[in-house]
Every structure is written in C-alpha cells, then in structure tokens.
Simulated scan of single mutants.
Amino acid sequence: MSKVSSIVNSIKMSAVSSISIEASQKNWKDTISMAGGEPQFSPPAAVNDAFKEIVAKGFNKYSPFPGYTSLLEKIRAKLSDFNNIQVDLEQIYTVPGGSSALFTALMALIDRGDEVLIQDPCWEHYSEIINLLGGIPKKVKMVKDSNGHLRIDKNILEQSITSKTTVLLLNTPLNPTGSVLSIEEINEVVEVVEENDIHLIVDEEYEGFVFNPFQHISPASIYPKAITLYSFSKTFALTGLRIGYIVAPKDVISAVRKVSLYSFMYASSPSQYVAEAVLSEHHIDFAKKACDEMYNKSRFLSNSLQSIPGVVCEEAEAGLYVNPNFIKFGKTGNEMSRVLFEKYHLLSVPGEVAGANGANSIRLYVGLEQEILEEAVNRIESATKKFTFD
C-alpha cells in the first residue's frame, strides 16, 4: 500500500491557508480578507524597468549559488546603512523568499530531536517547519512589562533551555503582535545564547514597519554570530518574486550552501535582478513612506476597534497586524474568527495558533483600502452586538 511520509502526514495546514481555501469555495462577493499579509501598495518604480530588462541582460540564466555579486554588494550596503551590520560578501546568501530562508537556515543547523526555542506568540509556520525537519519546537512565553511591552523574560528563557536545545529562533518585529526587541532584551538574549552555546536565528521579515518611537535593532549589529533572515516581500511589495537572503558567519553559510545545492539550487535570477534594482534606488525613503502608510492604517484600525464596547485592541509597536481581544465576551479567538467568517464573510487568523499569548484574540491585516477597513470595523461591531460582555 502506497503512503506518504509520516512526518509530512503529521503536519497541519496553516490557519491562513485553510481559511483562504474555504473562502474561495464559497464564492462570496463581499469577502474581506484580513487573514494574510499581502501588501497592497505598489512596489518601487524601478521594478517596472527591471522587468523589461531581464531577458535582454541575460538574467533568465542560472545564477551563481550565493547570488549575483552585484546584488550581494547592494545587500551589504543596505545592511550597513539600515541595520548597522558589517559583513563580507561571503556572509550573504540569497534564497527564494523568507520561508525558504527559515527552512534553509534551520536545516543547516539542527539534527533530528534537537529543540528549537520559539516565542509565544509567534508565526504559526515556525512550529511546523521545525517539525518537518525532525526538530522539536518549544515555546518560550513572552511577558508584558509595566509599559505593556510584550518582551522576552531572561529567567523564562534560561529555564527553557535543555541539553537538547540547539537554536533560539526570534522574530522582530514580531508576527503577530508587532512587538519590537529592545536593546536590553537583545543584550540579555546574547548573554543566554553565549552561556549555553546555542545558535541565535533572527527573522526580520517586518523590519521596514517599525513605528515611532520604537526602533528596529538587528541583533547581529550587537552579536555578529547571529544568523539573520531577510525578505524583499513585505517592505517592497514583492511577495510573488520569492526573494530573500540569509546573513550569517561563514561556517554557517557553508552549511547553507550545501542545503541549497540539494534543494532549491539558487534564488531566481530574474528576482535577483529586480531586487538589485530596488536597492539601487532610494530604498530607505521608499520603506519609510510605506511604513508611514501602515502606521496610519494600523492606528485607525486599533483605535476604531478599541472604541467598540467590550473589545480590547492595543496599538502595535510595528508590523502589519492588529490583534483585537474578545475575552470580555467569553470568546476564544477560534470562536470569534469562525463567527466573523461564517456570518460576516471576514477572514482573520485565530490568536491561539500563535500560542497561549494569543488566546481570545484574532489577527487582522491592516494594509487594506480605507473604506474596506471601515467596513471591517462595522462588521466586527455588528458581531459583538450579538454578545454580552462583563
């Protein structure tokens, strides 16, 4: 009898993919999709010209394994200017998007049965990628400080480490809540990983969307041994191009090269050419403008939801999502997400899939047109009027 891999068979579909597939089968005409994180703004103007030039300039051919040197040089300059990270070209490796960066970096570092520490809450894909690689995901619960900042507690982190722990995987800004690692947190994390001789991987997918007065700090600017994962998808609205990169010490990059050789081979040449064009323009100015737009939408949505009686919705420090909480109605995130889906055709992500810290909340994408955001608020308010709250 034929069968599929038992490991693959144990992997769950993500909440975003499941609800998107279900919605597509409904053929509703009034669906509001706030489950995914697809930027709606246009990419940098340089992208259009780059697409026209790809074939003429030979970028439909095989790429060098790490990526084209000209792109690596642009990435190195970006890392220096924006992230305060100084590296050699040999420490940069291009990959087909942020998810590929995660998969490749983890495959290069963990063996079957190794523990990987991840934040609670975090992107639900982390656990399943680790499971797929034969590792063991282990949640480290974050706590709120006196200012309401969701942070990593050093004592909890230290108590989570065992002899099987190999990697600490962090995300800043954090999906789903938008929490940003502070310099104090980073210094404490560095102390812990150094004392316990474990790898530190940092996913900085949302680096371009940090709101004042908060500041994005790349841990690798303080701790050069950190392995950092980047993508062009969110900041530059290039989700479909599938292009990202890994920045790491040379020995880790050597392992990454082996993984790439027998998996994706190399990042797409056309995508690399477009990425280089983006970094050749005023990319930091573009990112700031995009961030300002997301800030305004995020604040509108969180303030509007907070004004609904019984709904709690804190302002995000960064990112593309807000996370209204419905605990006063006695509703779990799963229940609220289901009600909004079935009765109001609004797609959201239950907070529980991100971990215990996501209980009773849902994740909503903020980057939609203003009138759509207003309609979403109206539908959520209509739903809550059917409930009572304490």
Results as ranks from 00 to 15, higher is better:
Leu241Thr: 05
Leu200Met: 10
Ala316Met: 01
Leu238Arg: 15
Gly310His: 09
Phe329Glu: 03
Lys328Pro: 15
Asp251Gly: 04
Arg299Pro: 07
Thr228Gln: 13
Thr228Arg: 13
Gly310Ile: 10
Leu229Arg: 14
Phe326Leu: 06
Ala226Arg: 07
Val259Ala: 00
Ser254Tyr: 14
Ile243Gly: 00
Tyr266Ala: 07
Phe236Asp: 09
Lys258Ala: 03
His216Leu: 07
Ala237Asp: 14
Arg257Leu: 04
Pro213Thr: 05
Val278Gly: 00
Asp203Tyr: 04
Ala248Gly: 09
Asp197Gly: 05
His216Tyr: 15
Ser233Arg: 12
Val274Arg: 00
Lys234Glu: 11
Gly310Leu: 06
Ser269Cys: 03
Val322Tyr: 07
Phe300Asn: 01
Ile308Trp: 03
Cys313Ser: 09
Leu238His: 15
Gly240His: 11
Ser221Pro: 02
Glu315Gln: 14
Gln272Met: 06
Arg242His: 04
Leu229Glu: 14
Gly330Pro: 01
Lys288Thr: 13
Gly208Thr: 14
Ile284Cys: 06
Ala267Tyr: 03
Ser302Thr: 08
Val247Gly: 08
Val202Arg: 04
Arg299Val: 08
Pro324Leu: 04
Arg242Glu: 10
Val259Cys: 00
Lys289Val: 13
Pro324Arg: 08
His199Gln: 08
Pro309Phe: 01
Ser268Gln: 11
Cys313Gly: 04
Lys258Ile: 09
Gly333Ser: 13
Leu200Ala: 02
Thr235Cys: 11
Leu305Trp: 08
His283Lys: 04
Glu281Phe: 09
Ser263Pro: 13
Val274Pro: 10
Val252Pro: 03
Gly208Trp: 13
Ile308Pro: 15
Ala220Tyr: 14
Pro309Cys: 01
Ala275Pro: 04
Ser268Lys: 02
Val210Tyr: 07
Asp285His: 11
Gly319Thr: 03
Phe209Lys: 00
His216Ser: 09
Lys288Asn: 15
Ile327Phe: 02
Asp285Ser: 10
Ala275Cys: 08
Phe232Arg: 01
Phe329Val: 06
Asn325His: 09
Ser304Arg: 04
Lys297Gln: 10
Ile253Gln: 13
Ser218Thr: 07
Ser221Met: 07
Gln215Asp: 02
Lys297Gly: 05
Tyr321Glu: 07
Pro213Val: 01
Val202Cys: 12
Pro324Ile: 08
Cys313Thr: 02
Val322Phe: 08
Gly310Lys: 09
Phe326Asp: 03
Ser269Leu: 02
